[in-house]
Simulated assay, not measured.
Amino acid sequence: MKNITTSAGLTQAHAAWGQCTLVGAGPGDPELLTVKALRAIESATLLLVDDLVSDEVVALAKQGTRIIHVGKRGGCKSTPQRFIEKLILLAVREGERVVRLKGGDPFVFGRGGEEVENLRAAGVTVTVVNGITAGLAAVTSLGVPLTHREHAHGVVFVTGHAKPGDTGIDWHELATTAHRVRLTLVIYMGVTGVAHIEQGLLCGLPHSTPVAIIQNASQPGQRYVVCRLSELAQTVVRENLASPSVMVVGDVMQGLLALQTTQQPLRVVAG
């Protein structure tokens, strides 16, 4: 005779489950965490930590918390997404308080949307805690706004890394629109394809458009350089800039460009 699970039994089983929270760990500086994020980290029994989360943030977990690093970074060997989701589901069913700790904000190029959809489909209730995304922290650390009444009427956050089989961003079209309506472009994960990005943007933006490249935003090892768009790829190569870096394109960077030429050394900004 087949076992029959009633709705009441299913409800009781779910009641014994733990919980899952997707937490934005911000750009790295632990002082930029939200109070809600800090509380979630401190209450976790299991932390699943992305590569871009700083050690200082992970150190905020209480003693005895299990910590598993589930690295995901472009160009490197990554933990499969399906494995991460299965691990979360298993831990929740065992009554764990799981915190999925993601760099920046979970819903800004963090694949948080995919995780929430899959976990909810499996019956897991997921809470999301926002974090300061690197694009905001990077320009703020330089004392520059993303929007300005004289220079930029809006801002676009875009990824420079497309998933396999996807053609990615039409840089020509994006640049043309940005120039026409005066937008600041914030490009994540663009270092690997910087030559292609530069070529596409030059089809719609002036060669003299200022660009800031900020590596390790908000952290003690942060460094940045400002150059003209026509010099973007060669600057990244010459200064050995690597991931994680954010590129900010637009006239809001005119002031910094006036102060720094590409011949000057990279500045180091303490976190």
Rank of each mutant, 00 (worst) to 15 (best):
D51H: 15
S230T: 06
T261D: 13
L146T: 01
L52F: 12
R267L: 14
T147V: 03
V155E: 01
R100T: 08
V129L: 12
G112T: 08
W171I: 01
H207Y: 11
L46C: 09
A40L: 08
G168H: 11
V23G: 10
A212T: 13
V155A: 09
V128F: 05
T147D: 03
S54F: 13
Q81N: 08
K77M: 06
G221R: 14
D251K: 09
A217N: 05
T125L: 11
G255I: 12
V269R: 11
I187C: 03
A217W: 05
P27L: 06
E150K: 08
A121E: 12
A270N: 13
V186S: 02
G28F: 11
L119D: 04
A212R: 07
I84E: 05
R180I: 00
G143M: 11
L202G: 04
P145H: 02
L241P: 02
L185Q: 04
G9D: 15
A40F: 05
T184L: 02
Q12N: 13
V248F: 01
E239W: 13
V155C: 12
G250E: 12
Q199K: 15
N240A: 14
E150V: 00
K102P: 05
Q263I: 06
I4N: 06
Q263A: 14
L32K: 04
D51W: 14
L89K: 06
V249C: 02
V35I: 15
V99G: 08
G26A: 08
E31Y: 01
N3M: 13
V128R: 05
V158D: 01
A212W: 02
A121V: 02
R182P: 00
A40M: 10
N3G: 07
I214Y: 08
R97Y: 09
L33Y: 07
A121D: 09
E150T: 02
E96I: 06
V23R: 06
V139L: 10
P265I: 13
G123W: 11
G204P: 01
S78V: 12
G110C: 03
N240E: 14
H179P: 00
P27N: 03
K163Y: 00
G131N: 01
E239R: 15
R267Q: 15
P106E: 11
H148R: 04
A138P: 03
I132D: 00
G271N: 11
Q63S: 15
T184A: 03
A175R: 05
A25D: 07
V92I: 13
T140L: 02
G160Y: 04
G112D: 08
L229T: 04
T65R: 08
V53K: 10
T159R: 03
G193T: 14
H196W: 05
V186D: 03
A8I: 12
R223G: 00
T235L: 10
G123Q: 09
L87A: 14
T125E: 15
S141M: 05
A59M: 09
A178L: 07
L174D: 04
P265L: 12
I132C: 01
V236K: 06
S218K: 02
G143T: 06
T11L: 15
E85C: 12
T140R: 03
V236Y: 06
T262L: 10
S208H: 15
A138I: 02
T11G: 10
V156Q: 00
P220Q: 07
L142Q: 02
G190L: 09
S218F: 04
R149M: 06
P210A: 10
L10A: 14
G110N: 08
A195N: 11
G255V: 13
V35T: 14
R82G: 06
A121Y: 03
E114G: 07
